[in-house]
């Protein structure tokens, strides 16, 4: 009964925090989570409560443990950066809103881990939508048991695209989710499934090697997310991560006037498209020049017109030469 009570309370707190967060200007969120509705007193209370946790669960806490009876080896991987957390999506929340009752005292309760809220307690609608996509993803079909939201999304760090705004920052954050495992032997081995043929653990493919076909590979990785190609095209970004067999290999999906980047990486900026200086997809152009996509339709027409005029001029000149020669010949013979 008490557990049920806690869950209801927590759910109500989440709803309240989400309502609060929805009123907060995105730009302000990017730096430090503050809110017009979050009174300084309330914020002070949240920060004070969280500082009690950060006293141990931070780099500072690991370096100078406030208690002598702490197991530093266990604590080290559980350290967080308070500044990063305060600026993250969950930065207005108290730690205990997710880390439940078992964590309020130290030593934490033996079963404290079980009281950590699942993401769907707050993000029910999103999880419902994502779950189907995730089930079809290569991660779920190969290593489902080991995969949760937080395997990729760090709730203490991550920011949503509309808060980050700058596509380069979105790319850096989101690609790190993939690279954490796919560019690390150690992390990859933790999740690697058994190879069907050799029944040994699947070896991590060299990401540079398997992307060799992609021109300017590294430039792409700084400019677009892995999921731009490794998810199927849907209205909103899908969580169905697909492997190389199903991944997008058609360059023109992004490199054309109707670039899918406007509905993917740049979706949150699409409403700001103003065709600046007459460029198509100028919203992309602010951070990347994408050959084939960020063109200037009027300049293109002018250039095509110049070629047409040149060809027409040469054709007329050539025809006139032929006619003039025939006339001259006739005159000479006449």
């Amino acid at each position: 009964m008490r557990a049920f009570h806690n869950t209801v309370l927590r759910f109500a707190a989440c709803i309240a925090m989400m309502l609060l967060a929805s009123f907060v200007p995105a730009a302000a969120l990017a730096q430090e989570k503050t809110s017009a509705l979050m009174t300084p007193e309330l914020l002070e209370k949240v920060r004070r409560a969280n500082n009690e946790c950060f006293a141990c669960h931070s780099e500072e806490g690991v370096k100078k443990p406030p208690r002598a009876d702490l197991d530093i080896t266990k604590l080290r991987p559980l350290a967080h950066d308070p500044k990063v957390f305060n600026g993250s999506n969950h930065g207005l929340m108290e730690c205990t809103q997710c880390h439940g009752q078992g964590y309020t005292e130290f030593p934490h309760a033996a079963d404290a881990r079980e009281s950590i809220s699942a993401c769907e307690e707050c993000h029910a609608a999103k999880v419902l939508r994502i779950e189907k996509q995730l089930d079809a993803s290569v991660h779920a079909t190969r290593v489902k048991d080991k995969f949760t939201c937080s395997t990729c999304h760090d709730p203490h760090v991550d920011l949503i695209a509309s808060t980050l705004i700058d596509p380069r920052k979105i790319v850096a954050q989101d690609n790190q989710h993939c690279l954490d495992c796919h560019d690390s032997e150690l992390e990859f081995a933790k999740f690697a499934p058994d190879d069907e043929q050799t029944s040994t653990k699947k070896k991590r493919p060299d990401i540079d090697k398997i992307h060799e076909w992609l021109p300017n590979t590294r430039v792409h990785w700084q400019a677009v997310r892995c999921v731009e190609c490794h998810t199927p095209a849907t209205k909103t970004l899908s969580h169905e991560i697909v492997n190389k067999e199903k991944a997008e290999r058609q360059c023109l999906t992004c490199h054309s006037a109707s670039s899918s980047l406007t509905t993917r990486l740049y979706r949150h900026l699409a409403k700001e498209e103003q065709e600046r200086l007459g460029f198509a997809n100028s919203v992309i152009l602010a951070s990347s020049y994408v050959l084939g996509a960020t063109r200037h339709p009027w300049l293109d027409r002018l250039i095509v017109g110049a070629f047409a005029a040149m060809l027409l001029g040469l054709l007329i000149h050539g025809l006139a030469r032929i006619v003039a020669r025939i006339v001259r010949r006739k005159k000479n013979h006449g």
Binding site: W213, P215, Q250, C251, L252, H255, G292, R295
Partner: peptide, 22 residues
């Protein structure tokens, strides 16, 4: 082919065109 890249008017395949052009 690269500048006027268009899925409806395939000229030289994009990644091939990039490599040849380079």
């Amino acid at each position: 082919s690269l500048h006027f890249a268009d899925p409806n008017l395939p000229f030289v395949e994009f990644s091939l065109a990039v490599r040849v052009h380079n």
